[in-house]
Design a binder for these strands. Structure first.
Length: 591
RNA sequence: GGUAGCGUAGUUCAAUCAGGCAGAGCAGGGGAUUGUCUAUCCUCAAGUUGCGGGUUCGAUUCCCGUCGUUACCGCCA
């Protein structure tokens, strides 16, 4: 028997017991006449003690040969410690070892297996099996498991059926780039890995499974970020005979349940905000509502006073950094301005107005505006003495985007983005279509099966080009703390409306039939009204734990270049494999 | 595809600004140590400064290229 207990469970109550433990050597502290060794497994750390008095010479000498990460089995007696360690649960006891068996030696690991490791990202990924031994990574994966279990529990309880959908499917032109898989039996043809099980879950609705869910891997061949992996997991759901309202309530319920059971937290309200309002007040379709600092439009009070930059701008708008007037010297503001002018943000400049606590007003555009003018601005914001307005101007969409970055940065600097606080938000009424200037065609903002709002259907069937830009969809996103957790929509279940949507998206009838004929076909056999949503499962876990990278919630993640550093994938394949698939490699020529 | 940063001992970093013997913490080896707990003290070892080229009497440092990596922008229905 390798163990009678794990390394995290022995307490004072066990004193005197003969126990057997197995685990990894965390480290040793050799005091000469006696030696302490920490034995670790995923449950905790238990201290082993070897002394000249009580330990046989053979065992003691063997113990001195133990290196970090050796795997051992020990037998011994649980003792009460003379000096206790209040920092760990097993800190009151130690094991007086009388038998030590080295199960496996270990090379010296390339980084320390500690909570605060000295290992960089690259090493940690290459030696992921060592990184996985670290407590923070284990805690994240255990948390993820918990969230998965509770998700299944909640949705099953609510009558949802978990159905698996295929991973080898068909490439579709819309959306992200597909990962493709060559077919040996169908030479020259390819499967694609699903970007999401979208069409399958809709088919399941036609098939009568009126409540479907799945924890499912999705694949998108796009460039990566800290919160984006080429393969990721969704909580994918679809329901029949429901309105948007019922869907939002169902998944608000799921979200509340997950926070309650996995974090012990009761979430506050799930307010609703239209896409237009989010863009206007926050310049983002995923605003962080842990803090206010909403945009205020200054077109009315700032234009027509002779400041050419503002006069020629489509939008003049700003935020109020409350109480920051004294915290920002001219130098600080210059730095902030330079930060805003980085190519990633691309602001032309930044105007400030300080309402100093002594009642004076200071502004970078004081030359053009009287104190009374500036006071009028302050009134727009409800600014108090000590507040500082930060104002941008320019083309409307760009300015909003830049102001969003500024707002988030100021929120960060002012400590308003508390990782322990959770503010959910439904953003609703997304536009149905997005006009792409480059390709001169419409894209589906959500996906091509999204239904326009009922009141917009008539206009969609008959309207002109400009009308199409203004169509709203029954599409919604759940945002928590400025992170898009997931989204969904009511789907089109009518074949004619779906055809019209394909028309607008620039599909010919033939293309639509070739790509989605199976779905259009299904819609001719009594498709129920349906809708659904999907949550990014990895992201949800990260947000719940207040972290902004999803990598440590995935056991074997890929790096920025989409490489698995541990197994070193992707990799070339043998010529025989290529031949079998009738594939040739044509690398791009060097420039 | 782009922008920015990083690449130096097993590892995390310093030295690079202004070219002149490449240094520290941790990890590792050896020793000491009567209650440690990421022990402490002494000591030893550890380097193709990512790679290639250029400038220079001399390059870790400056320049060009390249590769790797991170964050972000584009992209991600």
């Amino acid at each position: 028997m390798y163990r009678t207990h794990n390394c995290g469970e022995l307490r004072m109550a066990n004193v005197g017991e003969e126990v057997t433990l197995s685990g990894w050597i965390q480290g040793s502290r050799d005091l000469g006449f006696m030696m302490y060794t920490d034995l670790r497994d995923r449950y905790g750390i238990t201290q082993l003690i070897f002394t000249e008095e009580n330990t046989t010479k053979e065992v003691f000498e063997s113990a001195r040969t133990l290196g970090r990460e050796y795997v051992v089995k020990v037998k011994g007696t649980v003792l009460e410690r003379k000096s206790k360690n209040p920092n760990i649960p097993t800190g009151d006891i130690e094991i007086d070892v009388n038998d030590l068996e080295i199960l496996n030696a270990s090379k010296v690991p390339p980084f320390t297996i500690e909570d605060d490791t000295d290992g960089g990202d690259e090493l940690r990924m290459k030696y992921r099996y060592l990184d996985l031994r670290r407590k923070p990574v284990q805690e994240n994966l255990i948390f993820r498991s918990r969230v998965a279990v509770e998700t299944r529990s909640y949705l099953s309880q609510a009558g949802f059926i978990e159905v698996e959908t295929p991973v080898l499917i068909k490439s579709t032109p819309e959306g992200a780039r597909d990962f493709v898989v060559p077919s040996r039996m169908n030479k020259g043809q390819f499967y694609a890995l699903p970007q999401s099980p979208q069409t399958f879950k809709q088919i399941l609705m036609v098939g009568g499974f009126d409540k479907y869910f799945q924890l499912v891997k999705c694949f998108r061949d796009e460039d990566l970020r800290a919160d984006r992996q080429p393969e990721f997991t969704q909580i994918d759901c679809e329901m029949s005979f429901v309105t948007q309202e019922e869907i939002l309530n169902t998944f608000e319920g799921l979200t509340r349940y997950l926070f309650k059971t996995c974090k012990g937290l009761d979430l506050p309200e799930f307010p609703r905000m239209t896409y237009d309002e989010a863009m206007e007040k926050y310049g983002s379709d995923k605003p962080d509502t842990r803090f206010g600092m909403e945009f205020h439009n200054l077109n009315g009070v700032a234009k027509g006073k002779g400041f050419p930059v503002f006069d020629s701008a489509e939008l003049v708008a700003g935020i109020n950094a409350e109480g920051q007037a004294d915290n920002y010297s001219n130098k600080d503001i210059k730095k902030l301005t330079e930060w805003m002018q980085r190519p990633q943000i691309g602001a032309k400049g930044l105007v400030y107005v300080k309402f100093n606590t002594d009642g004076s007003i200071k502004s970078s555009v004081g030359k053009f505006y009287s104190d009374d003018d500036l006071k009028a601005w302050g009134e727009e914001f409800g600014a108090k003495p000590g507040d500082m307005l930060l104002i941008l101007s320019g083309e409307e969409e760009k300015t909003r985007k830049q102001l969003n970055e500024l707002r988030l940065e100021m929120g960060e600097r002012m400590g308003l983005r508390n990782p322990q606080e959770f503010k959910p938000l439904w953003v609703v009424d997304f536009p149905l279509l997005e006009w792409d200037e480059d390709t001169e065609r419409f894209h589906a903002m959500h996906h091509p099966f999204t239904s326009p709002k009922k009141e917009d259907v008539e206009r969609m069937m008959n309207g002109d080009h400009e009308t199409m830009k203004a169509l709203r969809a029954d599409a919604y996103d759940l945002v928590i703390n400025g992170v898009e957790i997931g989204g969904g929509s009511i789907r089109i279940h009518d074949r004619d409306l779906q055809s019209r949507n394909f028309d607008l998206l620039g599909f010919t009838r033939e293309e639509a039939m070739a790509q989605f004929g199976f779905l259009l076909g299904a819609f001719e056999y009594g498709a129920p009204p349906h809708g659904g949503l999907a949550f990014g499962f990895d992201r949800l876990c990260a947000v719940m734990m207040g972290q902004n990278t999803i990598r440590d919630f995935i056991a074997f993640p890929k790096n920025n270049q989409g490489r698995d550093m541990m197994i070193d994938a992707p990799s070339p394949i043998h010529d025989e494999q290529l031949d079998e698939l009738c594939l040739g490699i044509h690398l791009p020529k060097e420039a």
